[in-house]
Design a protein around this nucleic acid. Structure first.
Lengths: 114, 114
DNA sequence: TAATTATACATAGATAATCTAGGTATAATT
DNA sequence: AATTATACCTAGATTATCTATGTATAATTA
């Protein structure tokens, strides 16, 4: 496949970086946000998201910092880096090519944002 | 995730059944056809496609039969079954929900068939 | 005519993404 | 005091795809 598993097997990197593009967020929040925005289609597990965030930080695409929340335990916020923004552009391009290709094969409906 | 890995990790089942919906095909042909239709975006390996076809047959979604080709070794054609057609409908629905959700999260462009 | 190439099928083991299942820590609610 | 919600973390299981290799047949090339 031309698409690596980060996209096909997992669009998680694309989704996480997309959220971080607009504002800093913490892991737990990302899960809730994805659930909300996707109408419950995305229900990422904590066991999925935290290792991905660690890898993203390790790869230099995001940078974390600690901050207190109103409730519960202290939060670890993630901010997208310049490299992360470049990565996001590439991931979006891959997703576009991938989804267009799938639609070509399966018959090609039209999908609008709403 | 609501989407099982057959879709997220692999849209192969969706792609293969979509091709078989129109006409019977053999494995090697499916690889070439996907490559062609996707403008080289999909370049499935034989090590991927044959095990998937075997599983699809085992699950009753396709049925195979032998036939001679013009060149090379004898071909093994696959025909989609009634259960396979039902499966395809579900896989398409999942793909639609998935791609719409991704587009909502990443900003929502519009993707047309062409 | 011998070697190579293209076609065509097949499988074992490696790799990697996600999930399961457990754990820790803190504050609010019951 | 116990439970619930928030918030983080990781080890191991599961599974999809790829890598690598092998077999078989016919056409092409040297």
């Amino acid at each position: 496949m031309e698409f690596d598993k980060n996209l096909i097997g997992g669009s998680t990197v694309l989704l996480i970086l997309s959220l971080l593009e607009k504002t800093d967020r913490y892991g737990y929040e990302i899960i809730r946000e994805l659930e909300l925005r996707s109408d419950k289609a995305f229900q990422l597990k904590e066991g999925t998201i935290y290792p991905v965030l660690h890898k993203l930080e390790n790869d230099g695409y995001v940078k974390s910092y600690k901050a207190e929340g109103e409730r519960g335990r202290a939060r670890k916020y993630y901010r997208i880096t310049e490299n992360g923004k470049k990565k996001l552009v590439k991931e979006k391009e891959k997703w576009n090519k991938f989804s267009i290709s799938v639609n070509k094969v399966i018959g090609g409906e039209l999908y609008a944002f709403n």
